[in-house]
């Protein structure tokens, strides 16, 4: 029955059906008071039902294109995409394969074995997003959701100081700006990271539901890092079907956030082994259904002694891999000289 398509309670649906309103077209030209009388409900409830019923007022005929509100043409989106700034990873080689860095409006999943530098990359992004616009940043704030308890504030300060150093050095070369004029201190980086600690999967879902409200009050948030999305979903879960449902619902909410507020969502993920074609292979955790949930997927892996990042999935970028290094100053390009010394 068509009324089943309305996002209203089952009780109201039942009342609609028993009063004979089974098809949506019957609702289209009805006054709330009429419906309230027929269904024996309050007028507010009737108004709520009618709000969800389809009506023709949402089609914009003024431009001659008959665009349904909320839609965008590919041409308009192309221009918006060109204006989008990306968040640099601080490694030029990773930025190159990503087309400049982590993209806003998209959900990017980054996964890899323990110790490969997922948290480091997460912290680096939370710092880099704050770079002022004239330094190639977004001048925004970061939300950091920590599920594992691996966020080290001393390390953040270290990365922020290095980032600040680089910023000063770049400024001195290009614009002859003195240190005092930058107006940002390493401590400021810490202030602009909004940290949430999450201790169970219900807390995690509650927080992600709350983010919509929180970000609409803090519009300058430009990145949400979840470190890691996996942790609480890998234990104490017997009903795997429930897990799939919860995860896919959460993914859609994160997608919505990314699009609505034009921010980047970065989800860090762990790895697991998967039995395929007669052998065990390493793959990102949370299963096959989850692998569809993100817009982009980046896998971090070891190749000998070098760390590599590989684009596993992306609608607009081709698959490629690039080496990087985790240094005392944060994520940087892999300097092959260092490696050779280390090997000898």
């Amino acid at each position: 029955m068509e009324v089943g398509r309305l996002p209203i309670s089952a009780a109201l649906k039942g009342k609609l059906v028993s009063a004979g309103y089974t098809s949506l077209s019957l609702l289209s030209s009805l006054s709330p008071s009429h419906l309230a009388r027929d269904l024996n409900i309050s007028e507010n409830e009737a108004l709520d039902i009618l709000k969800h019923a389809p009506h023709d007022g949402r089609i914009d005929t003024s431009s001659g294109h008959h665009i349904i509100s909320g839609a965008q043409t590919a041409w308009d989106m192309l221009h918006e995409e060109e204006l989008l700034t990306r968040i640099t990873t601080s490694s030029v080689e990773i930025d190159n394969i990503l087309g400049g860095g982590i993209s806003c409006r998209e959900v990017t999943e980054i996964g890899g074995v323990p110790g490969i530098g997922k948290t480091q990359l997460g912290i680096q992004l939370a710092v880099n997003v704050q770079l002022p616009v004239h330094c190639g940043g977004l001048g925004g704030k970061a939300i950091y959701i920590d599920t594992e308890g691996s966020f080290m504030v001393e390390r953040v300060l270290q990365i922020a100081e290095a980032c600040w150093d680089d910023m000063l050095a770049n400024n001195a070369i290009s614009q002859n700006v003195h240190a005092g004029q930058v107006g940002m201190q390493p401590k400021d980086f810490l202030e602009n990271i909004l940290y949430f600690r999450v201790c169970s999967y219900t807390e995690q879902i509650a927080l992600i539901n709350y983010l919509d409200k929180f970000i609409s009050e803090h519009r300058d948030v430009k990145i949400v890092v979840v470190d890691s999305i996996t942790f609480h979903f890998r234990q104490d879960f017997e009903d795997m079907a429930l897990r799939t449902r919860l995860l896919s619902g959460m993914a859609l909410k994160l997608m919505k956030l990314a699009k609505k507020f034009c921010l980047a969502v970065v989800l860090l993920n762990q790895v697991t082994t998967k039995y395929a074609e007669g052998s065990f292979q390493l793959t990102l955790a949370l299963g096959d259904s989850w692998s569809h949930a993100c817009t982009n997927r980046i896998i971090l892996y070891w190749n000998g002694n070098e760390r590599y990042a590989y684009i596993d999935k992306s609608p607009s970028l081709r698959s490629a891999s690039a080496p990087y290094a985790v240094t005392a100053r944060g994520i940087r390009n892999n300097v092959s000289n260092c490696k050779r010394i280390k090997l000898m």
Binding site: A74, L78, R105, E106, M255, A293, P315
Partner: peptide, 15 residues
């Protein structure tokens, strides 16, 4: 009409 649930519609790719 392209209904996109995963923010994966890329206008650049279309171009």
């Amino acid at each position: 009409i392209y209904i996109d649930t995963g923010n994966s519609f890329s206008a650049k790719r279309i171009a």
